[in-house]
Design a protein around this nucleic acid. Structure first.
Length: 115
DNA sequence: ACCTTGACCTTGG
DNA sequence: CCCAAGGCCAAGG
């Protein structure tokens, strides 16, 4: 049964969380990149959906490593995120934005390479 | 079925 | 660099 395009709510959530868990220490990726990677498998969802997953289930994973396209920290959680990045010495442009050129991590193939 | 909301993105001024 | 507008996708009222 190849071509399983049907996207159960739970499957989408799981794929997103699995990816976020794989973001290495001191690095970060964007909502958009995660959305793109997951969409390649489920065929649905966008950056906002990833944001929703994080809002509802993010507490279980390193959510602070998921940032906006311009490197700004997750809206409404900037303080906590900044603390974490300070602790793991993530390359920053300033106090508000991650340096994605240096700290950026592409989820891409990671999804296919599941354990 | 319509409207609003949201841990978003891109483009243009 | 800052701001506004339009696009986007799904959930909830």
């Amino acid at each position: 049964m190849s071509g399983n395009v049907s996207t159960s709510h739970d499957e989408y959530v799981e794929l997103v969380l699995r990816l976020v868990e794989r973001i290495p220490w001191g690095r970060a990726t964007t909502y958009g990149d995660i959305a793109e990677a997951v969409r390649a498998v489920t065929g649905s969802g966008g950056p906002r959906q990833v944001g929703r997953v994080m809002a509802l289930h993010g507490s279980a994973v390193p959510w602070w490593r998921v940032v906006r396209a311009d490197g700004r920290l997750p809206a409404g959680h900037e303080d906590e995120a900044r603390q974490q990045h300070l602790a793991e010495a993530t390359p920053m442009v300033d106090a508000e934005r991650i340096d994605l050129a240096r700290a950026g991590w592409d989820p891409g193939a990671t999804l296919l390479n599941r354990p």
